[in-house]
Design a protein around this nucleic acid. Sequence first.
DNA 1: CGACCCACCCGCCATG
DNA 2: CACATGGCGGGTGGGT
Length: 371
Amino acid sequence: MGGNRVRILNQPGSGTQTAPLRTHRLIAVPPARHNGTDPDPESMHTHVVAVLVAHGAPVVELAITSALFGTSHHDTQALPRSTGGWYEHEILVVDPGRRGQLSIAAVDTADGIGSLARADTIIVAAGPSIPPDPSDDVRQALSSARARGVRLVATGSGTFVLAAAGILSGLRATTHWSTVEELRRHHPDVLIDDGALFTEDSGVFTSAGAAATLDLCLELIRQDHGASVANSLARWMVAPPHRQGEHRQYLAAPLGEASEGLARVLDWASRHLAQPLTLEEMAQIAAVSSRTLNRRFHATLGTSPLQWLLTQRIRLAQELLESTHDSAEEIAKLTGFGTVGNLRHQFTKAIGMPPQHYRRMARDRADQRET
DNA sequence: CGACCCACCCGCCATG
DNA sequence: CACATGGCGGGTGGGT
């Protein structure tokens, strides 16, 4: 199985620097599936992910969405063979002709709106300036998409665009920490959840932008293809299996009513990492058997209880190494690893360097940032 | 580093 | 019959 085919379609009249509008459509076409498991490929609708972005915007989010949605992972070890069809990823790049100014509004005269009409998910990427001022056409296109039940996503300052379209009124949302106050001033009707990596409310997603977009996209894939697929991709991307931030994303996740017990376990366990937690204790907190708890972990997190616990402890150890001068013994106690030998063994295996090395590296990096 | 023990993990099957 | 749950058992991997 070969890689991805990418078609680049230029608008008529494009390619000249005097053209007021230039729209490139990058369509990543997934290769035909030929695993015999799917009964009728013809009836399968390929999920279309459309990304709206202005010329001059940061490229990090395009890179992330392209890597996740626009890449067929079936010929690598990123995904199990049994995974079904992937996405059609479409990037609408808008050149407003006014360099340095965000102008998603310029898309209204292109057939970008028409492309949005066939999208199942629309991602409004962050733009090059704050605040963006989308045109009425874009607002209407987005709000009508909202009315059709299209999944709407905003990353970073893209949240401003959704808010300007009136879509976020009364909904929880977030944006980049540097522009939270500005968002609050412009759109007081939005319930801003600052500090969250990403939010979900009534089918509308927002992320803090940049790297948090990866977490958000993994969450979308988790909802579309299940936790184990998302986790496999996260591992392939060398990303944390599920970066939960303040674990509020779990509570917002509408996946299962039965996951409340699991949320209780995660909350409780993450606050008692210093204790030698056992599987039976966690099962009691969740009021289920250990066997079922194991299944719940796999269904919602894509990992086993012990592995999740190990991840939490490693993360805590990283924070302590970075932000305190605690001794190795102290950190071993606080993280629940017990002995320094155990801490060093697990930490080195997970991070790739011993704790002391990590602490020095973090300090050096912090010192560089000072100057 | 090898050895040992035990907790955990997960396929499998019975049950509701 | 579909589905979730829980018990069982053996293999595995973590901890000393």
